[in-house]
Simulated assay, not measured.
Amino acid sequence: MPLENYTIIPNVNTNSTQRFTATPADIISMEKMLNITTDEDYKTYVTTYGCGILGGTYIRVYLPQVATALQKEWLERITQYWFWDEGKEILTKEQVLQSVVLGDTLDGDEIISYHQQYYVLPRHQEMIYKIGDTLGDAISWLCNTGILTEAFEEREFEPFDPADYQQ
């Protein structure tokens, strides 16, 4: 499913619709550093919408710089706190450790990419779910299936400054 056109709403704190987007060079740099190839939906999302929250307060897709900065710490945390053994038929621990984290949800579920496929590691479940071939598929799955949260129709994007990640 292709990316939808999301309604951009003002940031709740700044009342601004200013977007903090990535450049094609940012994407290329991340892909080289993390040995990943991202899909066109991811590239479109981060260059068009950028840093923010989608679906009211539910989905956060990381800018390339953020994904790169978080990857080492994320791998260490996943190694130490692995608990998704019920999902080993979907992805093994070794495969997850070869993945790249590209986003998360308000609930702490982590959106990862492995071999150009999207998966989610739920915070409150020991299962792993394959959620799509593209970021558009993954967003649709997260918003519509009702598996990790109640399905919702809201498709608003609220931009925020990536410096907020540091707070």
Rank of each mutant, 00 (worst) to 15 (best):
V12L: 05
V12H: 01
V12M: 05
T14E: 04
T14F: 01
S16N: 01
S16M: 00
S16Q: 08
R19H: 04
T21G: 03
T23H: 07
T23G: 01
T23Q: 10
P24G: 03
D26Y: 08
I27A: 09
I27T: 03
I28P: 00
I28D: 08
I28S: 10
M30C: 08
E31T: 03
M33S: 12
N35I: 03
N35D: 12
I36A: 08
D39A: 07
D39F: 07
Y42W: 08
Y45T: 05
Y45K: 06
V46T: 13
V46A: 04
T48L: 09
Y49H: 12
C51V: 00
G52C: 13
I53C: 10
L54Q: 04
G55I: 02
G55Q: 04
T57N: 15
Y58R: 11
I59D: 07
I59L: 13
R60M: 14
R60I: 12
Y62R: 08
L63F: 01
P64T: 11
T68S: 09
A69T: 06
Q71E: 14
Q71L: 02
K72G: 06
W74R: 08
L75Q: 07
L75H: 11
L75T: 05
E76D: 09
I78M: 10
T79K: 15
T79A: 13
Y81L: 09
W84N: 11
W84Q: 06
G87Y: 05
K88L: 05
E89L: 03
T92H: 02
T92Y: 01
T92E: 03
K93Y: 07
E94N: 15
E94H: 08
E94Q: 15
E94P: 04
Q95P: 03
V96M: 06
V96R: 04
S99C: 15
V100W: 08
V101I: 15
V101M: 15
L102D: 02
L102V: 15
D104Y: 06
T105R: 13
L106N: 12
D107W: 03
D107T: 10
G108K: 14
G108M: 11
D109F: 13
E110M: 14
E110C: 09
I112K: 11
S113Q: 15
S113A: 14
S113E: 10
S113T: 12
H115F: 02
Q117Y: 07
Y118D: 05
Y119R: 02
V120L: 12
R123G: 04
R123S: 11
Q125S: 14
Q125Y: 15
E126W: 03
K130C: 00
K130L: 00
I131H: 07
G132F: 03
G132E: 02
D133M: 04
D137G: 01
A138H: 08
I139R: 09
W141I: 03
L142Q: 08
C143Y: 15
G146L: 02
G146D: 02
L148H: 09
L148G: 14
T149I: 13
T149L: 09
E150Q: 14
A151N: 00
F152L: 01
F152R: 06
E153L: 06
E154H: 11
E154W: 06
E154M: 10
